[in-house]
Amino acid sequence: MQQISLLLTSLPDGILLGFVYGVAAMGLTLIWGVMDVINLSHGPIIALGMFGTFFLFIRSGINPYLGLIPIAIVGLLLGVVIYFVAVHRVINAPHLSSLLATFSVNMIIIGIGTAVVTTSPYNVDFNMGSFQLGSTTVLGTRLIAALIAILVTGGLYLFLFRTRPGKYIRAVTNNRSAAELMGIPSTRILALSFGLGTMLAAVSGALISTFFPFSILAGGSYELKSFVIGVLGGLGNPIGALFGGLILGVLEGAIPAFLETSWVPVIEFGLFVVILLVRPNGLFGAKQ
């Protein structure tokens, strides 16, 4: 009985967080789907999004939700730059090359970040009130973050399925060489996809910073979560990532009702490996 009430208390939070995790994973899985690159600079970019909010809000007083717009634009541009500097040359090389290339971007960002903001924790004290849902207190910031996450997902869906560049991205995801034969400018599409993936990472970081403390190193754990979610939802399937995020959020909300919180990562990563083995295309299937 006690467990059920505990479950009811922690589950709504988990679900709301799940949507935000989903956005982070969407960025990772979009890049994977389009160019078979696992972006190891994902975590630091999430952290940059967090600090984006910090500087815009604390230093310049810009509302964190309004601040998402410049953060998204900078994220997009940063992604395009990273693509051309670090990824483009190794896009057809063995996986190790692109993994290490993005990892070196990770090192560069963390290195500069450490020099500028150190590794100590930061906090954006932003309050949007809270309300009661049954026995649970739901924080306003989390609810709004989840709503924005859903909006972003919807926007991404419309972009991928309704606009020309979005359709190009899906074509390149499906079969790059065929898409090139049909005259799709693949380099530009690859750069755009990397930019979008980076943008989503930065936005998710900005949202997370409104309710969790963070440091320049904080992105690492969200990057790992993004791997798990990406695999749950099917690597290469951005929309599946939202569902993957929800599953992870629900797990994080539900497990503490039955086990100690420290068992959460054991189950998460165990599940991750098992799904890679039995359903490498994710629970909902994705590209082969």
């Binding site: 670090a86 070196s104 971007v105 560069i108 290195g111 500069i112 450490t114 020099a115």
Partner: peptide
């Protein structure tokens, strides 16, 4: 910024 310098070197090598 030692980490960044290492990162740049790694990137150049890759």
């Amino acid at each position: 910024i030692q980490l960044s310098v290492s990162g740049v070197l790694l990137l150049l090598i890759v």
